[in-house]
Design a protein around this nucleic acid. Structure first.
Lengths: 295, 295
DNA sequence: TCCTTCGCATAAGTTTTCGTTATGTCAATT
DNA sequence: AATTGACATAACGAAAACTTATGCGAAGGA
């Protein structure tokens, strides 16, 4: 490393590359928008630093030495590499990446983490499409989709995926009020009835957990977000999907009120549309989602 | 291409790379041998050009954005690539490459072409070891060997190879003096008697060419070089190995005095010792030899 | 709480690098 | 012999880079 010590004037190298390409100091000067004298001087300086000529001066022409040709190919490769990256970054500075996810996932997982993404990726705008109906990846409307289910999917490539577990949650307040011990018929159950996704029902949960009583949900909501808000407000026990309620467990507005955790077979999947146009912005967003989901 | 338009300040990029590596403006400044203010300024300028911050300013620390990390990896790769090439070139500027070849090949083929190599590769010194005894590639004394024979060889890798043809040659002066038509017993034959290599004898040649007379060489030499000098001096007809006498055919000091050309099965081979240490200088020399031999 | 310290930011001024203008050289061409 | 085209060189001027000096804000210690 320590490139400054190991590298001669980068301006000189830039000029050498142009000279090599145009096979003439004068032509290169034109391309670079400087005078022929400037090029001549930079090349001379470079030859000085390298301890050997880079071009043989023929009559009205120059001929690059073999070492110069080697250097030239290294330079054009490297500069092209850098220039491409720079361009991608510049483009990303006004890029918008659209992510599609369900309302619950957006609200409970994605949006709370977006601040982190914006910090790490200033310049990239994120647009979130939250809808519970299955997102159409083929329409080109979203760059990245997040879908709950079991991969694979026919309309996109899964680039990241994680499973989830379900556990009963309630507010700390409610937890103190209820009688200690396992769930019982005396608890207030909050149920989610949604058409779009198989949110586990309390009946299913209790059966799998080996409970012997029947649940009589006292509150029912069409949307999982409302279920969770009700639980946080101390209105009873809800089925908490761990990935979704983790932020509330962390900040203490929800607590687990039973030790049993049921593993669900579905997974949260990050999907790229099959014919997605890849940009640096979408790559960065996809990489970030992957890291966050796995982390 | 047109890199100047596509690239921001290269100094800035160089600094960004150092900052990423040292994770601090101050540390990078130290490494670069400039003040912290200089680094701060260059990074700010760069962020301006790119239209987005590259680092988040945390308390007593900085955090690179995702785009910055991408750029950084591109930069360190590219700069390392360039720096390596530069170093190789600097090293080659006082490099000596030793080429081993027979006396005849050195004298008639290699040395006349060396000027071209030196033109194209100023800074690289060529040392030629001319000896008719088989050159020992294992000793490490030569970097590149040129050997006549049929590949493969056990002590080196053949990187280039060409066959040769044999034809009778004489000076233009002698050609005018002799009677026109095919070779005859009246011609003065110049013969090479060497222990080291099977230079074709006139007897063999005449047999293969279908001649009905016997050759009585009037001059005999131990070295092919002398044979050719004698022929150029008009002292008779010699067997010309085309690759070796080509320069004399070109400059007119020798002419073919028979249409028949005999293809020999041996070849001139450019050999790299099996355990050669490769340097840019030896690579360039090998590439040049290959090109010259094939061209 | 207040002070110190550590890193980065900013402004003004200086140095270095880069580039320009003007002119020169050289050899092929006319 | 004069012209032309391509690179070289020198002196000067402009732009970029760097320095010095100072500011700012937050963490950590007295």
């Amino acid at each position: 490393m320590q490139f400054r010590r190991r590298l001669p004037s980068l301006t000189g190298l830039l000029m050498l590359e142009a000279v090599l390409r145009r096979k003439s100091f004068t032509a290169a000067a034109g391309e670079l928008g400087v005078t022929q004298a400037a090029v001549s001087r930079q090349i001379a300086l470079l030859e000085d630093e390298l301890g050997q000529p880079m071009f043989l001066r023929k009559h009205r022409a120059i001929e690059p030495t073999a070492a110069c040709l080697t250097l030239g190919s290294s330079l054009s490769q490297s500069f092209a590499n850098i220039a491409d990256t720079i361009e991608a970054i510049k483009a990303s500075s006004q890029a918008v990446v659209t992510i599609g996810a369900t309302v619950a996932f957006s609200s409970f997982w994605l949006l709370p983490r977006l601040a982190d993404f914006r910090d790490r990726n200033p310049g990239i705008q994120i647009r979130v499409i939250s809808q519970d109906a299955k997102i159409d990846l083929d329409s080109g409307e979203v760059d990245i989709g997040i879908r709950y289910g079991s991969p694979p999917f026919s309309d996109g490539t899964v680039i990241a995926s994680r499973g989830d577990v379900i556990m009963p949650v309630c507010s700390p307040d409610y937890f103190r009020r209820r009688e200690a011990g396992p769930l019982s018929a005396r608890d207030d159950f909050i149920e989610t009835d949604a058409v779009d996704r198989s949110w586990l029902s309390w009946t299913q949960w209790l059966a799998k957990s080996g409970a012997t009583f029947e649940a009589r949900p006292s509150l029912r909501f069409n949307h999982y977000t409302e279920t969770i808000f009700a639980a946080r407000a101390g209105q009873g026990v809800a089925l908490g999907w761990k990935a979704l309620v983790q932020t509330f467990l962390d900040d203490g507005t929800l607590v687990a009120c039973d030790d049993f955790q049921l593993m669900e077979e579905g997974r949260y999947n990050v999907l790229l549309p099959l014919k997605a146009r890849r940009t640096m912005a979408s790559d960065l967003a996809a990489a970030w989602l992957t890291a966050m989901l796995h982390g």
